[in-house]
């Protein structure tokens, strides 16, 4: 049986709006992500996809319910412990790439290493070289992000998300800023990585993109509908 990477139990995210009205960005979400899965969270704009991804990625906390990683509810962890867990557990890929423009490609990829508290059983520099080589960006390693194409930037971001060998890759609209062809290449890359056993969760509002994954989690008005 495949082990569970993360599971959400009755997770809600409430915002108190003006006039005492409560807005549910997420409502009673139950979700389980298994090791090796390649899933998409799909839904229209404003449905709560990013909110869900931020909770899974430990950037945000639910107002109700439990987030369980390795049989432990992580809602009670303090800020430092959450940061450390985030650093080891999850790798993010964003729509706007979110690379730091004053760092080189290689420095960007190695950035998470500087914040890690664990001992490495591999050489991060070598892994960075390997990832750059594999993603066809090795010749750009000393360039700066604003000097390379969008597709290349997203490859750098994916390399950065993989440098720590996390349990889970979270990609929020990874193709949103790319043309169709480049977007397809990125999705192909995710497919390959998943075949190697990496767990990937892609957030998208495009059904085409969602189809390319192996499981679709549909979300509407903060609720998982299928």
């Amino acid at each position: 049986m495949l082990s569970t990477v993360i599971s959400l139990k009755d997770v809600s995210k409430k915002y108190i709006m003006g006039g005492d009205t409560v807005f549910y960005a997420l409502k009673n979400v139950n979700l389980e992500i298994k090791e090796g899965e390649y899933a998409a969270i799909v839904g229209p704009s404003g449905s709560g996809k990013s909110t869900l991804m931020h909770i899974i990625g430990l950037l945000d906390k639910p107002t109700d319910g439990k987030v369980i990683i390795g049989n432990k509810d992580i809602s009670s962890l303090d800020d430092d412990a959450t940061s450390t867990l985030r650093s080891e557990f999850v790798g993010f890929v964003f729509q706007q790439f979110n690379l730091l423009n004053k760092l080189t490609i290689k420095e960007n990829i190695l950035l998470p290493i500087g914040y890690a508290r664990k001992k490495f059983d591999y050489n991060p520099e070598e892994r960075a070289e390997y990832l750059m080589e594999r993603f066809g960006i090795l010749d750009k390693k000393d360039s700066f992000p604003n000097k390379i194409s969008g597709g290349q930037q997203q490859r750098v971001a994916i390399a950065r998300s993989l440098i720590m060998k996390p349990k889970l890759i979270l990609a929020d609209e990874p193709t949103g800023n790319l043309d169709t062809k480049t977007g397809n290449e990125i999705m192909e890359l995710f497919g390959e990585l998943n075949k190697e056993g990496i767990t990937i969760l892609v957030v998208t509002h495009e059904p085409d993109i969602a189809e390319r994954t192996r499981r679709q989690i549909k979300i509407k008005d903060g609720e998982v509908v299928k």
Binding site: L59, D79, S83, R86, L100
Partner: peptide, 14 residues
């Protein structure tokens, strides 16, 4: 935004 990215990559408050 940079601070957010660094936090997402595991940076602590300190």
């Amino acid at each position: 935004k940079e601070i957010g990215v660094r936090r997402a990559l595991g940076a602590r408050r300190n």
